[in-house]
Design a protein around this nucleic acid. Structure first.
Lengths: 203, 203
DNA sequence: CCATTTAATTTCGTTTCGAAACTATCTGGC
DNA sequence: GCCAGATAGTTTCGAAACGAAATTAAATGG
């Protein structure tokens, strides 16, 4: 009764808000922190203005402005895509990287780092299944790592094929495997589910 | 590696944002939904503009405006406090109650309701310990139910004393025990900890 | 080759927000 | 009782964020 799902939702909301909210003495606004964080952690195909818009649950127009402001501040650099000339991706500058050390969300990360790894794993499972449920009702975005994504086709063991994202058919680098993707689709859990104790998937 | 604490923090942030963000076709703004939700679930001593400001991690000025707009819409009614003439509390009107059925956060609640209760319990523990850690660094607010709060002094078994909140020394009703409090302090977990498998508390 | 779709940007008006100033009330010491 | 300081709530005002719509450019698919 004290641990109702409703209470959990309220606490999750409050925690996210209080942890991501700059204490007013910080260099960037909340939206700018979110963008800086995102471009530091997303896989290359996701590091676009549209990708950030999905991550931040806002419009592309608003996302474009936020990104532009960070570019003006010298925290991001713009890289035009080779395959699609409409598309641009962003990289953190060294200043941007340094700045991330003051990200207000770091206190939440630090708190989670103190948990036992199994607990973190469970938390991730719960969060991911919840994102799937939320995204199902609306057409929201599910966040996950390329590693766990069904769209990732790894290079063959013979080294013949190169790893690509099946969604964007863009090449991935090894460093992208652990990064966040905004076009994530969870792998269908086969009979050999590695986490039989995990959260129930809705029928 | 795929379930890093950092990734968990990002997913938590994204989930909260995407779930609480109205699809733009909803009657209220994100801030208004948060306020309506809060006043529906907080214990009476917490149902003040200041209480909502803490919950929403914003200033009292901003909170005051949000509350005022909901009052104007007929979703909240203002009740002046008997003990402190500066203070006011708010109650949901019937319309406000009805409106809560369309709360965008309900899809998240629904997702969490599908989890096994033990999983929800674990999630609550993780969220609460994280809130404590975040609140420790800054002077943020920890959210919890009066039931689990060390400030709650229940009425004696003889019925002599009435249940009060030790923080505000205000009387509580039985219905408040399971409600959210913004002046929450977790009970010190004694040797007879009911959840020995729970998240480690930082040393 | 043309219609459609998609990526990104810009513009514009609205809303939200935070900081600071202000009023009213409570509290504690004297 | 009285005054200083703290606290609850409100208001004001300028800055930022936001959504919607229009625009440009490029990819895609008959």
């Amino acid at each position: 009764m004290p641990a109702s799902p409703q209470c959990a939702a309220d606490m999750l909301f409050h925690l996210a808000r209080s942890a991501s909210h700059p204490g007013s003495d910080t260099a960037l606004t909340a939206a700018q922190w979110a963008a800086l964080r995102f471009f530091a952690r997303a896989s290359r195909p996701s590091r676009t203005p549209s990708g950030f818009a999905r991550f931040h649950a806002t419009t592309r127009g608003t996302a474009s402005q936020t990104v532009k402001s960070l570019e003006r501040l010298g925290y991001l650099t713009r890289v035009s895509s080779a395959h699609d000339r409409r598309s641009v991706t962003f990289e953190l500058t060294e200043t941007g990287c340094d700045c991330l050390g003051n990200d207000p969300l770091r206190v939440l990360e630090a708190a989670l780092e103190k948990l036992p790894p199994a607990e973190v794993r469970r938390l991730c499972d719960v969060l991911q299944s919840s994102m799937v449920a939320v995204a199902g009702n609306q057409d929201e975005t599910v966040l996950g790592t390329c590693n766990d994504c069904r769209n990732l086709t790894r290079g063959g063991e013979g080294g013949a094929d190169l790893p690509v994202c099946g969604r964007t058919s863009e090449r991935l680098e090894a460093s992208d495997f652990a990064r966040l993707c905004v076009q994530f689709s969870p792998k269908v859990t086969g009979p050999e589910d590695s986490n039989p104790d995990g959260p129930a998937v809705s029928p």
